Computed example of a mutant assay.
Amino acid sequence: MEKLTNIQRLTDSGLVAVIRRPKAEKIAQIAEALVNGGVGALEITVDTPGVFSMIDKIKQEFGARVLVGAGTVLDAETAKAAIDAGSDFIFSPIVDEKTIEMTLRYGKISIPGVMTPTEIVKAYQAGADILKIFPASSVGPNYIRELKGPLGHIPMMPTGGVSLDNVTEFIKNGAVAVGVGGTLLNKQAIEENRFEILTETAQKFVSLIKSAR
């Protein structure tokens, strides 16, 4: 039941922030800025030093307001470590069936990365909850629309290259949510501690997602 509620929370917001290698001393401020902007899920990539304690900290601090999970997960062992740290979901750039199995075993949301129709169907049959179309910039919004013809029953979430310029088209073409990294996590703004810029950008994304629906 909790998992279904969490999937609903993720898709209602429609916006997942991809936080790659943040500095430990800034993660709480980054998280707060994004949550205030309406982000539904925070993904911290597992190549981040101290990622599991970061997930644990953010989950404890913001868990009631936002989903927190791990990204760039390539195997089941890493997925288990992320789940032990409190992850609500597991993001992968690939399809690894053992990772999907591990995620499902603990009742968490599985979001593997796919590109071809065959990968999409195989991952969905293996139990994936949402399919991350990655890298989305290589295929563009029309690709989602084309996939929705034969595979309309499978929830898809483009990630990689999603921006304020194309998010409307991705949602209109059938994406249930989008994963956004660089556009949302403005490096210079973070460096200068101008976290309000992250909030403003998130609000723009959320507003565009709402109107596209």
Rank of each mutant, 00 (worst) to 15 (best):
K210I: 05
P93K: 07
A175M: 13
A82C: 07
E119V: 04
F62Y: 15
I130P: 12
A189E: 08
G182A: 09
G40V: 14
G14P: 11
E119W: 12
K187C: 08
T5E: 15
G37I: 10
T72M: 05
K26A: 07
L15D: 00
F62T: 08
I144K: 04
K98T: 01
L164Y: 02
K59G: 05
P117K: 02
K80R: 05
T11K: 02
P155I: 12
I109L: 09
Y106T: 10
K187W: 01
I133K: 04
F52P: 01
S53C: 15
G179F: 03
E192T: 13
E2T: 03
I55L: 02
A212D: 01
T78I: 10
N6L: 14
L74G: 06
G38E: 06
R20C: 09
N142D: 13
G161H: 04
I19V: 03
I7P: 06
I27S: 05
I94L: 01
Q8P: 11
T78S: 08
L104A: 07
E97Y: 15
T199L: 06
L208M: 06
E32T: 04
E196M: 01
V167A: 13
D88H: 11
G63W: 06
L67H: 01
G149S: 01
L164E: 09
P117C: 12
T99N: 02
I27E: 02
N193W: 06
E200H: 03
M1S: 15
P155D: 06
K57A: 15
A24N: 11
N36W: 13
G152I: 07
L42T: 00
G149M: 09
E101Q: 15
